[in-house]
Amino acid sequence: MSDWLGRLAQLPQQWFESPIAAITLTLGAYFIGIRLFKLMRRPSWCPPMLIAAIMIAVIIALLPIGVDDYNRGASWLMLLLGPATVALAVPLYQQLPQIRALWKPILMTLPLSATLAACYAVIIAAVMGAPENVLASLAPKSVTSPIALSLAEELGGSRALLMGALLTTGVTAIFGVEWLSRILQIRDPRLIGLALGINGHALGTVRAFEINSVAGAFASLGMSLTGAFTAVVLPLVWHLFY
């Protein structure tokens, strides 16, 4: 009997020797997270991804395994981020007519907005005395996750901190756009969409699609252009300073 209990106690450790357990846990938590999100009436401050991540963290803390055991398996899922980044070419290409029609105002506003989105955070953190690896994790905070992850890696930032930064930024940007556009009396869905996409990456884009399809299209335009622009410019500028 005690022999059997001993084997039971070893089971979690053995499960996580192969990536299967980590992938199962991630997928399961993802679907439960979506269901809880709907039950909570879709709060904008708490995306389903956060609910699922908290659940996984609690399970890892309860089981006799470390976060490294989980990460080893989950990295198999994250391997798909590479092809998923390439797949962003499809929405980018779909937005080309919009870009062509509005290229002048976009050229005037988007590069500056995308640069400011990174600069404000980096400057505030630098002034408050954050070290280089923290700055490198904050700089890509407004960029869509697959691009941001490889950027943080390129600059030498922390992956975990960047993920937290992405989440905080997305939630703050949604709140900020809704609050400030009301104060500034901006009702143009194109403008609200662009602001959501530039500042709030995928989380903001999802929110924009909830407003209407015009806002959604402009948000994905803003998101893909900010991603592409920041991916090109940020490493070049960064290596000038560090």
């Binding site: 509005l102 002048k104 105002p105 005037m108 506003t109 500056l112 907005s113 400011l116 989105a117 404000y120 955070a121 980096v122 400057i123 505030i124 953190a125 408050m128 005395g129 954050a130 923290v134 904050l138 905070k141 407004s142 901190l161 930064a165 905080t168 930024t169 703050t172 940007a173 900020g176 756009v177 400030l180 556009s181 500034l184 901006i186 143009d188 194109r190 403008l191 662009l194 602001a195 530039i198 500042n199």
Partner: peptide, 25 residues
Amino acid sequence: AILTALIVGTLLSVLSSLLLMRRYL
């Protein structure tokens, strides 16, 4: 430092992008 940078920085960048685009779009 991290939370101030993220929250204040994001609100500032939202504000400036809204103003910029209202001016040029």
